[in-house]
Amino acid sequence: MNILTCKDLTKKYGRKTALDGANLTIESGHIVGLLGPNGSGKTTLIKLANGLLTPDNGSVEVCGMRPGRETHALVSYLPERAVLPLWMTAAQTVDFYADFYTDFSREAAQEMLAHLQIDPKQRIRQMSKGTREKVQLIMVMSRRAKLYLLDEPIGGVDPATRDYILNTIISHYNPEAAVLISTHLIADVEKILDDVLLIRQGQVVMQAPVDRIREEQGMSVDALFREVFKC
């Protein structure tokens, strides 16, 4: 079943066109990479899927519905930036998510916090950047959502944490859900992806399975990306 569909999705900021008729379909059970250079429209696309922006033209649908309150309950979103209130403790963050999302598993979150040795009584303000990102990820992955939107999940973290994050994504694999990972770090992430979406200047220029690209092009997606988006 189609978890995320975009049809001729267009969004403009003043004179600048961030998305120019983007088309894509993501089905359940797939882990998809959204790859593209800065300014290609990745973040805009994710914001539109979240209902944080309204399209100028075209449509975006999550499980067949326009983004809104119902889709928010189905989508687990990991933003690129730090968004957790600084005054909250890790435990209060768990409370927060448990309060608003019926698909949130308190036990899973607490287990992951313990596993990463994060003190539940520690305030977000007192945590290092890396730890904050881990907390955010834990909250997002502790939900049993239909669509996971991960915006640069492994961007600013060390390699060990990177492995942990990718592992967490694999271990939470759910054939009824879809995962969309927007990233620059293609080489690290390639192995866990089913398909990739290459986006350039607001348009989806390629949607293909990773293995097909490797077979047909004889190179990794990382290498293909470098070619397609050569400066």
Binding site: I170, Y173, V210
Partner: peptide, 14 residues
């Protein structure tokens, strides 16, 4: 499948 995929660090579908 999931455990093997995690061990190998690859997509479970693959």
């Amino acid at each position: 499948v999931r455990d093997l995929a995690m061990e190998a660090g690859v997509n479970p579908n693959t």
